[in-house]
Design a protein around this nucleic acid. Sequence first.
RNA 1: GCCAAGGUGGCAGAGUCCGGCCUAACGCAGCGGCCUGCAGAGCCGCCCAUCGUCGGUUCAAAUCCGACCCUUGGCUCCA
Length: 492
Amino acid sequence: MALSVTNSLTDEREAFEPTGDEVLVYVCGLTVSDDPHLGHARLWTHADVIARWLAASGYDVRHVENFTDVNEKIAARVGERPEWDTEADVARHYIARVIEYMRGLNFRRATVYPRVSEHIPEIIELVETLIEAGHAYEANGSVYFDVTTFDDYGKLSNQQPDDLEAQGDPDERSEKRNPADFALWKAGGVAPDAIEEHAKHDHGDDHPTGQTWESPWSEGRPGWHIECSAMSMTHLDDTIDIHIGGHDLVFPHHENEIAQSEAATGQQFANYWLHTGLLQTDDEKMSSSLGNFFTVEDALEKYGPNVIRTFYLSTEYGSKQTFSEAAMAEAEERWERLERTYHAAVAACDSVDATAKAEDSDLRAAVSDTTEEFTAAMNADFNVREAMAALRSLTTAVNRHIEEAEPYDYQGLKAAIETFESLGGDVFGLQFDTETDGDVALASEVVELVLDVREAEREAGNYDRADDLRDSLADLGIEVQDSDDGPTFRFE
RNA sequence: GCCAAGGUGGCAGAGUCCGGCCUAACGCAGCGGCCUGCAGAGCCGCCCAUCGUCGGUUCAAAUCCGACCCUUGGCUCCA
């Protein structure tokens, strides 16, 4: 069954047909003015899983994810720390952190992470093209896109220029021919009142107003929307396959990207637009400006990557999702069951001879059903919740096999393990093997010793002592479970 | 005001594109049984849904059409 996706451009589920040998994917990335929060990580996770699924489906994927490192909010934070002398210093600091978190959350690396500051020439060139084509005009050193020159304006968001409330700051508005026109280039540095608004520290009147660049029109800064068009065209092509971004960017950002890109090239900018639903807390969206966010750093510390991913993968990318402690607790239960089953399967598999002939047809049927159902679900607009349900049915089959079968089906278990690794691991980015470093290995040996002592106490009937040992281990974050084959444990 | 998405059991959340296999998936919580010295895990089973409201189309609607109510997002920086 072939992949189909819901395209926000047409609002329809469409068969996915890439234009070339490589699938070209652009993800509207982060403005690096602050620590990223769980709302950002939700977009990244879904983008990551989409890219992984395309790769698993046999496509070569060229995945570009930008960092916006030129922005008023970034400029406003210059000087907040002694080492933050320039806008670039602040941006560099946050980009390094984001990369670290992305690694922590086990994302596939994008092909390129372009930055606005490195694409000023391409941006200027694109703006020149638009002016020459009559789609843009200069006013007092700034350049604006004239929305009345682009007939399809509004095709993504269905917003019509006439319906819009006047936007932008008053000075800018007076320069525009139409209220809905938007800036491609802004003369000068960041306005002092913008610095004032976004600065998180006391600053004097001489606060730096951000970096500026030479251009044919003025020494100034690029507009917000033009960067994505320039970087998408530079690193991908005039027409790309998939553009992914948050729902909050549909208007004006993506609408404007389409206008300026298609006006410049005459080509369709992106064939498929995928918009991810926003993360909410207490019935409003999580956002930097509302201050109701949970940072990726804190979440990684508190829940770890697998629980966070399991949480995100319990809803489809296009739906909104509500963050709560209860939801995270549920994700933790879901993840732990999967992880426990995986390890139980590995242990059971290790306990039998590879040449053993036992065969459990139920288990083997479950393996093939799982792959089939998982594939069907992912191909239906990346329905990760259904795909997860398929994986879930495999955990039940594996556990039942371990519970009831005697002897174990070596080949069946092996196939199940491989399925967990390819679907749960490679596609969902979950990590089953986390106990690899030396300290953990040593700790495991010590726990084994303690459990030997506890077994001796149990055999002697000293259950109080055995329970004390188990409780003490639990206090250290080590969960002990007794079974017919002896005790097992895991680190929480 | 304008544009968009959504309203399904205690919670969460699929299914809605292409009406029938939906007497509504996978879960979390809860309850019972097996197993166990106990606990946990696991297995088996159970509980909870007139699918926002009203009307229409149809042999048949959670799924299509219309009206209305409510929630969220966008229209200003925002994933």
